[in-house]
Structure formats: structure tokens, C-alpha cells
Design a protein around this nucleic acid. Structure first.
Length: 873
RNA sequence: GCCCAGUUGGCGCAGUGGUAGCGCGUUCCCUUGACAUGGGAAAGGUCAUAGGUUCAAAUCCUAUACUGGGCACCA
């Protein structure tokens, strides 16, 4: 503890090594102790962790440490997610860089490479979590694709199959042409893009003017199986039931009437392409229309496109438009903005495609989740994030779970000609082939809380830790993950998998933009830790982690947090410096203090300490880390360091041995108690200080986490001491302010005269405080009107500082007049409030008393100022 | 179109009924032995707008404007 400035690196290394060696974060079931369980949102094995992970995991670690310090048996389960498409894409990019692609490599070899990559990646990620100080139970590490989790996935699939909740069918799905796979509805993002709206004439079969339809996708016209108009649309009524021809290929299709068609849009005529549009699909089903595929899974036009077959959808579109124009079918082109759907993993435009896929029936699963939420068995923090969650469950649609990729849990279904498909772990026999697809990565994620505790087996750990307590995650995966875990948990275990979901925001750059590699505004958490220390990064994130809100990340905030850590460090150095070499037997205890002999400052700091630590605990209980951080920051810096330590300095040098010991005891205990309270946010520096003070504090525990929170006696709360100290502080500030304005430095000791109703108290009891903190050499009682003095007026006390020849009387008068104006404004406000309260029928008496005191204080200040001004006239 | 959130000093944010707070920044002063990653002092806000409820509104209600987000639709 010799370093003048806190050096995080060696401390972090020491602490991490000690925690590791002691297995500090290990948890096993303890009878009669309450379990507090968190399962990590498993990061995808796509690379290193980013600042959002740092936020997410610091939050969890803070909650876990908080509950450990509160006496719970806390267990935080680490793990990683195989990450499906996202991870496969990473590997495909690597292959491409080597001039390969996955088909050339082959499924087996590709998966081997994926395994190797995953091993490396896990190491990186878990190492980073360690570095962040996460007290994860490392022995419980899980991976969504390890054997235990694979068993859970298999069993879940099998159960859903048995219940008829999983089925295979040909539906219109979101198809990513680049990734070559189907996606679920929530894996699709929407983006406004400028495009065109083409008006195309479909001539009447047999000749004559037919109908003009408006479309944004002329290239899908070869999949048209009808043209639809609104049944009430008089413009086109004469055509309903007739046939028209698809231009360029002259295929006959009927004109039908359907209420889904809007009058106003385009021409009122709609080309119906059931195989490539959800609405058209619905219309097609209503009218028994066939679905003709015009685009294949590679994004190329099919045979149905006749001469255009084989062209990409983009080229095909250009060509079709050119030809339509050339042949006079194109009547008009408008600019048109529309929301295109894009793949959440690669950003390419989604193609709605008719294909054979596996689906999970969501309506049946959503009902229990909805009920659990409505009953309050499951809560979302903050609550306003709950509404969209609920809405999503209400409007839920079936979940397409099959993916045409290789990286994932292979669908455990086997086929054989002439046989019904069979669900099995391995081949049922000769001639059976397994479904080539894998499950959506979110399928295994949905089982995560169940699976990490061994489900479908239900051992002692499952009994003890499950259901889990809190889930901490970002709002962007509320549906993708949180809702599905609720549904699966309820479906397989009958209980919610976690009672609370803490939803945090996204870490953005300092101007509020989302961080992205392409914008070049990403912040690397490791770089922040290297530069400022892990505690500083953690504090910076926690101090801004208001429930549900995004965090604009400014490096300046980390600097501020680093400064705070350094402040704490130096306050501890100060305390240690003022302790004897050898600690007394049993250390300093608050309980051994003679309360009756404590000074005002002692009673004040103990009261504030009790208040601040209690407040911080309550706020962490309520998942409000930012509020907890703020309360402790203010207490430690602005109260403990700025006032109490300053006051302690004189007393530590004083002659009174008993007083010195009392001050030491309070310094030690308040500091150690504060370290405990801050430990969930600042695990490293707080433990380092805790260990240094441990012998003086009579703490037997070798780790702060094992010591538990200080049981702060609430009878330390002392409102009277708090308000009296506030008056002393106001008096000190008044003198300091006066000195600053007169340019008299604090180091220059001056004498002062005190007057007013609070003056006797200052003179009798607080003379030393005011002297030390305001740089007064002597404070004398008021006897007669002082000459050539500057005046400092505070609540109940006026100080006259004789400064013959130094002060400018005109300036002094001007200054006092300004203060007088302020006092008068205060009086106006106070009396208005007092009048209001008096007029009110049910005004609370303590409010009235408070207002009265405020009014009197202001009035007294005004009197003092007026008197002083008269003397100066 | 529906829903939600936000709008508070130069910037970023707290603050759910009783005289507006914090961090950063700004100005002036201080290198006094815990800390210049510090200390002291100061300037700076009609709490988006318009109504309403109340003795009392940044806080509750209703509209409006702007910003962000979600959902649905978008041929």
C-alpha cells in the first residue's frame, strides 16, 4: 500500500490468483442456506468479448457478489454458445481467405475445424471473464453443444414431438440466400430502402386491355398464379373471373377478388405470387391457388421464368424490366420506399421462399409463459420492458427451427422410404438417413437454464439451484431468448426458469451511435482495463447502468472512475499511516466505542455510513446498480474523505489518547464497511484494502467475499447529528467562500468573531472543526460592532473577519447586497410554501415544521445581513 | 398505423408532489505530508410546449412537437 497512485495491474493479478487458488467462486449446495443462481447468457464463440459483454457480466458479477455478501449461496454458471449461423459465418470467412469453401472441405472436416476454433475461442472468452473479475463457478462450465446439453436438446425435441408440438411442413419461410438457410421470423431485420414500384400491364387472355398491377418485384412475376383486386373495386369488377396473361411468358392466370387488396395502393391490382410473399401465400390459400416457385434457394430464377431461368434475382429484375419496357408492358415506374427484410447475421436481403422445414408450435407453449407473466411469477426489470414481451407472446407465430447449415445440433429425425420418420439419437437401422439440417441455435439456448443443471436428469444440484433467480441480458434478445427460455422451462419443468429478468441497454459510443466495426467506434474492454484498471471500467459501466437504458460510453467516464478508485486507495493509505504498527488484540470494533463520548463528527459519519451502505444494499436488491454506485461514490468521496478525514487529521495528532483511538476505530470500521459495500462493483481495490486493514478491523476472513457485509447497526442513524453537522459544514463553507472572494488563501490563518443563535454552539463544541476546516487561528465571541471586517453569513451564525486595510468596503457592501437578495428570494419561496401548507387541510405536520425552520433560517440570515450592511453604511 | 420510452445547466445523465442534483467541461485560487488521478470557491437550468388536477407539479393527467425504439403493413 505504498504506491502514491493506485496501480491496478499487480493488485488484480494477486487477487485473481488468490481467488482462483481458493476456489472462491465455487458453489455447492448448502443446506439451510438460500440459493441465489444466475446462468450466464452464453457468449457466442465468434471471437473476443466486446464492451457489451463487459457490461452484461459486470452486472451479473455485482449481483452475485452482493448476494454472497448478503449471506446467500450464490452460484453463477459460466458457459458459451455454439452460435449457429454466426459462428459458421466466421469459419466460412476464414475458409474463403484460404481460397476454400465449406462444400469443398466437406461436412466432417468442416465440423472438425469448427471444434478446434471453438476450443480456442472458449479459452479467450473465459479468460476475459476471469480478467473482469467474474466469480463464475468455473467447474460448472457448459457449452450449448457439449454432450450434456446435446442430451437436453434431444430430450426436448423428443418431448415436443411426442406432444405433437413439433412438426415438419412446407411453408413460406425467411430464406437467407447468402447463408443458405431458413431463419425464424425474429431473426429478420427490417430496413427502409429506396426502390421502385413498377406498373405492369397483364393483357386479357385472347386479346384486349387487361389489368395493370403495381409491384416492387417484377422478377417474381413468373411465380404469379393470379391477379387479385378488391371485390368492391368498380374499376376492375368486370375482369373478375376472366383470365389474363403473364407478360413475357404468356401463361394464363385468373383474376380473383380478395378483400386484402387495397384500393389506394398502386393501381388497385395485385399480382399474387404465393411462393414468394406471405400475403400472397395467404390469398393463395383462400382461393386454392397453386404456388409456383420463381426463385430458387440460391437466389436464381427458376425454370418457371422460361428464358430468364438461371439469372440472379438482381440481374433477372433488371432484364425483366428492360424487356417489359421494350415490349410495351411497362406502363409506369414510381419511386417507392419500402422496408426490406434482411438477415440479422449477414445483412443480405431475405427471400421469402416456400420450403420444407421443421416448426415448433408456439401458441401452445406461449400460453403458460403468458400466464406466468400475468401472475407475476416472472418479472421483468424495468417493468416497461414487459409490455412488448407480453405483446410478442400474444401475437406469437410458429417457430421455424430447422437450419440448412452444418454447425449445430443435427435434427434427430431419421427417414426411410415407405416408413414414417423416426426420432432417435442414432440410426434405427439399415437404410435410414438422418435429416441433414441442424436446429436453430436458439433452440439449445432456450434450454440453457435447465440444461446447465443437468436436465433431463434431476440431481441434487438441479433441486438446489433450479429454478434460477435472476437473468441478466440486453433487450435485443428479449424475444429471441428470454421468452423462449420461459416457454421451454414451463413446458418441461412446469416452473419459470428464472423469476427476474434484468434487462439492460446497449453500450453505444459517446454520441449515442451503435458501436460497429464499420463505423470504427468500437471500444475494446481489454484496452480500457489495461489503461485504467478493471475496477475503473466496472465502475464506469455500473454508474451508468440505469435499468433498461442504453449507455453512451465516453472514455472520460472511465477516467473519472479511475480517479475515484485512486481516491479510495489514498484514503486507505491515510488511515493505515495513522494506525499503530501492531494492531490491538481483536482490532478496532464499533461495538467497543463509548457512544456517549463520541463527537458530533463521529456521530455524523457513522450515521451517514449506516445510511449510505443500507441504501446501496437496497438498490442492489432492486437491481439498480447505478443508484448504488452513486450513493457510495458520494458517501466515500464527499463525506468520508472530504470532511471526516480532514477533521480526523487534527485529532490523530492530538494529545487525547482515548479520542485518538476512537477516531482510529471509526476510520477503520467505516473504511472497511465501505469496502464491503463497494466490493460488488470494485472487487479488486476493495479487497486489497480490506486485507491491509483486516488485522485492525478484527476480521478473520481471508477474503472480503467471505467476510460478508458489515452488519451496520441501524441505531447509528442520528438525524440530529446529521442536521447539526450540516450547519457546521455550511458555516465552514461560508467562511471559505468569503476567503475565496477576498483572495485570502486557506493556508493563511486568520481570526474571526462569531455571532448569532448558533454561535455559542460553534464556540463551545465546534470551534476546532471550524478552525481546522476554514483556516481560522481563533474564533472569539461577539462583543461589539467589529470594524473593517468582512462578513460570512450562514444558518444561525455570522462570522466577522477583521481585515483592516485589506478589504475594499465598496466591494464588500456589494457582495453582501447580493447575498441579501438571495436571502430575500429564499424567504419569498419559503413563505409561499408555508402559506400553502397552512391553507391545506391535510398537510403533514413534519412538512410544516420543516418549512418553518427553512423560513426562520432564511429570515435570520436576512437580519444578519441587514445589520452588517447598516454598519458599513 | 399501433405501442413504449425520452425531452432537466455547454455535453452526458440522476431525480415520481414540498426552495432543482451528479459527473465531465468552464472560470478564479491553492503544489498545506492520503490523493494535482488532488483541494477550495464560483458561474451556469422559466426541468420541450400548451392546458389541467393540487394548498403545492420537473414529478400526476390531457393534448402537441421533436428524438429514439418495438410491433404491424407496405403489391
Amino acid at each position: 500500500m505504498d504506491d502514491k497512485a493506485y496501480d491496478p495491474k499487480p493488485v488484480e493479478e494477486r487477487r485473481l490468483a488468490a481467488w482462483e487458488a481458493a476456489g472462491l467462486s465455487r458453489s455447492t449446495p448448502v443446506k439451510d442456506r438460500r440459493a441465489y443462481t444466475i446462468v450466464i447468457p452464453p457468449p457466442n464463440v465468434t471471437g473476443a468479448l466486446h464492451i457489451g459483454h463487459a457490461l452484461n457480466n459486470t452486472l451479473q458479477d455485482a449481483f452475485v457478489r452482493h448476494r454472497r455478501l448478503s449471506g446467500d449461496e450464490a452460484c453463477w454458471v459460466p458457459g458459451t454458445d455454439h452460435g449457429g449461423i454466426a459462428t459458421q459465418n466466421v469459419m466460412e470467412k476464414q475458409l474463403k481467405a484460404e481460397g476454400l469453401d465449406r462444400r469443398a472441405v466437406g461436412r466432417e472436416a468442416f465440423l472438425e475445424r469448427m471444434q478446434a476454433w471453438t476450443r480456442d475461442c472458449k479459452k479467450t472468452i473465459l479468460g476475459q471473464l476471469r480478467r473482469l473479475g467474474c466469480t463464475l463457478d468455473w467447474e460448472r462450465e457448459a457449452f450449448t453443444m457439449d454432450s450434456a446439453r446435446a442430451e437436453a436438446v434431444y430430450r426436448a425435441f423428443e418431448e415436443l414431438w411426442k406432444k405433437g408440438l413439433i412438426y415438419r411442413g412446407e411453408r413460406l419461410v425467411n430464406w437467407c440466400v447468402r447463408c443458405g438457410t431458413a431463419l425464424s421470423d425474429i431473426e429478420v431485420e427490417r430496413e427502409e430502402r429506396k426502390g421502385g414500384l413498377w406498373h405492369i400491364h397483364y393483357p386479357l387472355a385472347g386479346g384486349g386491355e387487361g389489368i395493370v398491377v403495381a409491384t416492387t418485384r417484377p422478377e417474381t412475376m413468373f411465380g404469379d398464379t393470379a391477379v387479385a383486386v378488391n371485390p368492391k373495386d368498380a374499376r376492375w369488377a368486370h375482369l373478375v373471373g376472366k383470365k389474363v396473361l403473364i407478360p413475357l411468358i404468356d401463361r394464363e392466370i385468373p383474376v380473383i377478388a380478395d378483400a386484402a387488396v387495397e384500393f389506394e395502393f398502386g393501381t388497385g391490382g395485385l399480382k399474387v405470387t404465393p411462393a414468394h410473399d406471405q400475403n400472397d401465400w395467404d390469398i393463395g390459400r383462400r382461393h386454392g391457388l397453386p404456388a409456383i416457385k420463381a426463385i430458387d434457394p440460391q437466389g436464381k430464377l427458376t425454370e418457371a421464368a422460361g428464358p430468364y431461368a438461371g439469372l440472379s434475382r438482381e440481374k433477372g429484375k433488371d432484364q425483366v424490366i428492360a424487356d417489359l419496357d421494350a415490349k410495351g408492358f411497362l406502363r409506369k415506374k414510381e419511386d417507392h420506399k419500402s422496408a426490406v427484410q434482411t438477415c440479422y447475421r449477414c445483412g443480405s436481403v431475405i427471400e421469402p421462399l416456400l420450403s420444407l422445414q421443421w416448426f415448433v408450435d408456439q401458441v401452445a407453449l406461449a400460453k403458460p409463459a403468458l400466464d406466468a407473466y400475468d401472475r407475476g411469477d416472472f418479472k421483468i426489470h424495468p417493468p416497461e420492458r414487459g409490455k412488448p414481451y407480453r405483446d410478442w407472446l400474444v401475437n406469437i407465430r410458429d417457430w421455424c427451427v430447422s437450419r440448412q447449415i452444418w454447425w449445430g445440433h443435427r435434427i434427430p429425425v431419421w427417414y426411410k422410404d415407405g416408413e414414417k420418420p423416426v426420432v432417435a439419437r442414432s440410426s434405427p437401422g439399415e437404410g435410414w438417413t438422418q435429416d441433414p439440417d441442424v436446429l436453430d441455435t436458439w433452440f439449445s439456448s432456450a434450454l440453457w437454464p435447465l440444461a446447465v443443471f443437468g436436465w433431463p436428469a434431476k440431481g441434487a444440484d438441479f433441486d438446489y439451484y433450479y429454478p434460477t433467480s435472476t437473468l441478466v441480458t440486453g433487450y435485443e434478445i428479449l424475444y429471441l431468448w428470454v421468452a423462449r427460455m420461459q416457454m421451454m422451462g414451463l413446458a418441461f419443468d412446469g416452473r419459470v426458469p428464472f423469476r427476474d429478468a434484468v434487462i439492460h441497454g446497449i453500450v453505444r459510443d459517446k454520441s449515442g451511435k451503435k458501436m460497429s466495426k464499420s463505423l470504427g467506434n468500437v471500444v475494446d474492454p481489454l484496452a480500457m482495463m489495461d489503461k485504467y484498471g478493471t475496477d475503473a471500467l466496472r465502475f464506469a459501466l455500473m454508474a451508468q447502468a440505469h435499468p433498461g437504458k442504453d449507455i453512451p460510453f465516453d472514455e472520460q467516464t472511465v477516467v473519472g472512475a479511475r480517479n475515484f478508485v485512486n481516491k479510495i486507495w489514498n484514503s486507505a493509505r491515510f488511515v493505515l499511516m495513522n494506525l499503530p504498527k501492531a494492531p490491538a488484540e481483536g482490532g478496532y470494533r464499533l461495538s467497543s466505542l463509548d457512544r456517549a463520548r463520541l463527537e458530533l463528527a463521529d456521530r455524523w459519519i457513522l450515521s451517514r455510513f449506516a445510511g449510505a451502505t443500507e441504501l446501496a444494499r437496497r438498490r442492489l436488491d432492486a437491481y439498480e446498480p447505478a443508484a448504488a454506485a452513486e450513493a457510495l461514490y458520494a458517501f466515500v468521496w464527499d463525506e468520508f474523505c472530504a470532511w471526516y478525514i480532514e477533521l480526523a487529521k487534527g485529532r490523530l495528532q492530538g494529545a487525547d489518547g482515548a479520542d485518538r483511538e476512537a477516531v482510529r476505530a471509526i476510520l477503520v470500521q467505516v473504511l472497511v464497511g465501505s469496502m464491503k459495500a463497494l466490493h460488488p462493483i470494485l472487487p479488486f481495490v476493495t479487497e486489497e484494502i480490506f486485507l491491509a486493514l483486516r488485522p485492525y478491523a478484527g476480521e478473520p476472513a481471508e477474503f472480503l467475499l467471505k467476510a460478508g457485509y458489515h452488519e451496520v447497526a441501524q441505531d447509528l442513524r442520528d438525524p440530529q447529528a446529521e442536521s447539526e453537522m450540516a450547519r457546521v459544514m455550511a458555516a465552514v463553507t461560508a467562511i471559505r467562500s468569503l476567503r475565496a472572494q477576498l483572495g485570502v488563501p486557506l493556508s493563511l490563518k486568520i481570526a474571526a468573531v462569531a455571532d448569532g443563535p448558533f454561535a455559542p454552539k460553534i464556540l463551545d463544541e465546534h470551534r476546532a472543526y471550524v478552525g481546522a476546516l476554514a483556516g481560522l487561528s481563533a474564533v472569539a465571541p461577539f462583543s461589539s460592532r467589529p470594524a473593517q471586517s468582512a462578513t460570512a453569513v450562514a444558518d444561525g451564525v455570522t462570522f466577522y473577519v477583521p481585515l483592516a486595510g485589506v478589504i475594499d468596503l465598496d466591494k464588500e457592501r456589494e457582495r453582501l447586497r447580493k447575498e441579501l437578495a438571495r436571502a430575500e428570494a429564499d424567504i419569498a419561496k419559503c413563505s409561499a410554501k408555508l402559506k400553502n401548507l397552512a391553507a391545506a387541510a391535510g398537510a403533514p405536520p413534519e412538512k410544516i415544521a420543516e418549512a418553518k425552520a427553512q423560513a426562520e433560517a432564511a429570515a435570520s440570515r436576512k437580519d444578519q445581513l441587514e445589520r452588517t450592511l447598516r454598519w458599513l453604511e
